[in-house]
Every structure is written in structure tokens, then in C-alpha cells.
Design a protein around this nucleic acid. Structure first.
Lengths: 193, 193
DNA sequence: TGTACATCAGTGAACGCGCGTTCACTGATGTAC
DNA sequence: TGTACATCAGTGAACGCGCGTTCACTGATGTAC
């Protein structure tokens, strides 16, 4: 059985969770040590008992955000599959939903940080590339057996690009029209049910 | 005939050009007043004779980057069309080229800033949305007459998402494979020549 | 069970640095006569 | 054409502020006996 986490571990985890949300909401530059600590109910002085540097926090937060977003997406896909949707349709409709459009801080980290990823330190870049491969793998899992890796890559790219452009246009008719267009195009091509 | 620009106007333009490149290379947070002025061959003190604030510079730089990227893409598309490619193929192969993968600071501003756009001030957001609509319009122009606005939206989203994910994977085999996958998928579907 | 002590998580003041912004000043350009 | 003056673009020192980081200290938790 797993030993129950110490107070220190609980706090550490809470800081990372807060940072993982701040990272998606505000971007890399928007994650401040004092701010994160305050949101975790602590003072900023204690930070360096948990992390050697702000960069180390970012690395943990990025990995956490990846797991977090994937877990949420996984739950939503399962719900839709339980209602009889194909795996691919469940993914496309979850990812390109109005909910995901608005919910940046709990959503897909690749969509939230896509254009900033290649500007980070080598460590963060490597971890970011891992997040991208994870998203492609998630898409691949929803494809039927004859689905190719190339198809998974293209679908993942379209999902990310659509969500970003829709967020830029805003959570209004324009943004929603963009989501709707991508949903029907993807489903028409890859899920002709 | 156009009056020739004053010294002041020439300098102003030079600052904006430098900022437009810095913006795409480093993101919004990576554009520093002192840095831009230095790259423009000036000292930072003179900045406020040209712009009321750093934000005002960002607004001009964003618009400039949009025109700049579109102009470059336009030239490349024309070159390819002159060699007999269809407009759509020319766009897809230019946008998803290895060159564009590496050339962030002179390339498409929507790809360079996509995930940061919705976090900016209302003025910058509005201008960013304009850049997105501009990209969609550019795609629309390359579609055959029966092409729909929805198709243009989806293609634009795929282009942006693919370029970002490829840049995150790196200018190596992985990144290039992603570009190649999207090129052939888009051409197979929308340009069955 | 109770007492004394060690360990540990967190506090809050202070630091150095970079950045946006301001401003008095300089040197060059242009204009009046 | 030449001189005197006004205008203007750019300089460089200085400012205030926020942020990452450090550190001496406190109060609570746990351990030894």
C-alpha cells in the first residue's frame, strides 16, 4: 500500500497544481513565484525549500499540466463513449467544445502554450516535445485500427490550431463557428459513421 | 506623388520593423524597449518621442508583422504559381516548408504568437483577431471558386497548428515528418490534381 | 505519560537586478532675414 | 551668401517598481528517554 504523503509532499503538490493552472492561464512568463505561493496559501519565502529555482517549478508544472489536461480529456471521452459515440468523435467533440474554448487553465497544455514552447530552455523544450507526442498518441488511440501515425499528427495539429484561433477570435459567434467548422470537417473525413 | 519620409518617420519605421521581428522571435513578453532601440541603432531614452508606451509599440509591431508575414508568403506563393503550382498547393507547400519552420521571426505572426494572443490587452486582442481573419482570408483566396469559408477556416487552423507542433518537436526529422504529413493530407483532400 | 530536545515547514524582511518610464540636456537640421 | 536663432531628434543619467532569490528566525511536529 502507498504510504500517505507527508505534509511537505502535500504542500509541494499543491504548489505544482496552482502553477500548472497559472501556466496555462498566463503563459510561461505569467507564472510568478510570489503569486503562485500566495494562491497556494503560503508566503513566497518558503518557495526555495520546495524548488531549486523558478525554472524547476515550471518543469514540474508543465508535466503536471500535461497529465491534468490528458486526464480531463480522458474522462470526457469516456463519458461520450458511454453514450455510444466513437472514440474519435468523442475526442473531437470534447476537444473542440465551447467548454474547452473557455477553460484554458484546466485544458490542453499544448493548445495553451503551443507558440511559446520552442522558446523555452532546453529542458522545458524537451518536456514540451513530450507533451506534443503525448497528444498525438492520444489521438492515435482514438483512431480505428487502420489509422496511421500521419493521420494522428494531422488531426492533433488541427485540434490545437483550431482551439487557438478560436480563442483568439473570442468565445463568441466567430470563435464557435471556427470550432464547428473543424468538428464537421474532421468527423466527415475520419469518422464517416 | 508620395512625399518622401522625414528622418523621424524613417526612424519610427525602423523601430517598428525591429520590434515586429523581436515579437515573433521572442513573444510579447520578449519585446524590451531598450533591446529594440539598441537593435535599431538608438539609445532607449528616445523611445518615448516615438511611442506613448511599450504597449503602443506592440500594437504597431503586431500590425507590421502581419503585413510582413503576409507579404513574404504572397511572394513565395507567386513564385510557386509561376512554376505551375495551383494557388492552394503553393500556399500549403510554402507555409509548411522547412524554411518557414526555422524562420520564425520573419514568418507568420499567427503561428508565432497563436497561444499568447488571447491573453493580451483588449486592443492587442482585437488586432490579433484581425490577423487571424487575415490568414483565413488568404487561405480562402487560394481555394477554387467552390471553396467555402468553413474550408478556409479549417485549413488555416491546420497550417497554424502544424507549424507550431513542428517547431516544438524541433527542426529535425520529427518536426519535418509532421510538416510532411500535413502537406500530403491537405493536398490530398483539397487539391486533388 | 510527561518532559526536553531536535528536526522541519513556513515566515517575512531584505537584496540585487532588469525593465518601463521620465527628463534635462546636446548636437544637428532647418528657417528668417 | 552668410549669420542668428528656433526647432527637433536623439542622448544618457536617474527613478520607481516588480520579481527571483537569500537568509535569519519562529512555531509546530515528532522523537528519545
Amino acid at each position: 500500500m502507498p504510504t500517505q504523503p507527508s505534509r511537505r509532499e502535500t504542500t509541494h503538490e499543491r504548489i505544482v497544481e496552482v502553477a500548472a493552472r497559472a501556466l496555462r492561464r498566463n503563459g510561461y512568463a505569467g507564472v510568478g513565484v510570489a503569486d503562485v505561493m500566495k494562491q497556494a496559501g503560503l508566503t513566497h519565502g518558503g518557495f526555495y525549500a520546495h524548488f531549486p529555482s523558478r525554472d524547476a517549478l515550471l518543469a514540474e508544472a508543465l508535466a503536471h499540466a500535461g497529465r491534468d489536461g490528458a486526464a480531463l480529456m480522458g474522462r470526457r471521452i469516456s463519458q461520450r463513449q458511454a453514450r455510444g459515440q466513437s472514440a474519435l468523435r468523442a475526442l473531437v467533440e470534447s476537444y473542440l467544445s465551447d467548454t474547452h474554448l473557455r477553460e484554458v487553465e484546466g485544458g490542453c497544455v499544448v493548445a495553451a502554450l503551443g507558440s511559446e514552447m520552442h522558446r523555452q530552455t532546453p529542458e522545458l523544450q524537451a518536456s514540451s516535445a513530450e507533451r506534443v507526442r503525448g497528444l498525438i498518441a492520444l489521438v492515435q488511440q482514438t483512431l480505428p485500427a487502420q489509422g496511421t501515425p500521419e493521420q494522428a499528427m494531422v488531426i492533433a495539429s488541427t485540434l490545437v490550431g483550431t482551439l487557438q484561433l478560436a480563442r483568439t477570435l473570442g468565445a463568441n459567434a466567430q470563435g464557435r463557428a471556427l470550432l464547428a467548422a473543424a468538428r464537421s470537417a474532421l468527423l466527415a473525413q475520419y469518422d464517416p459513421a
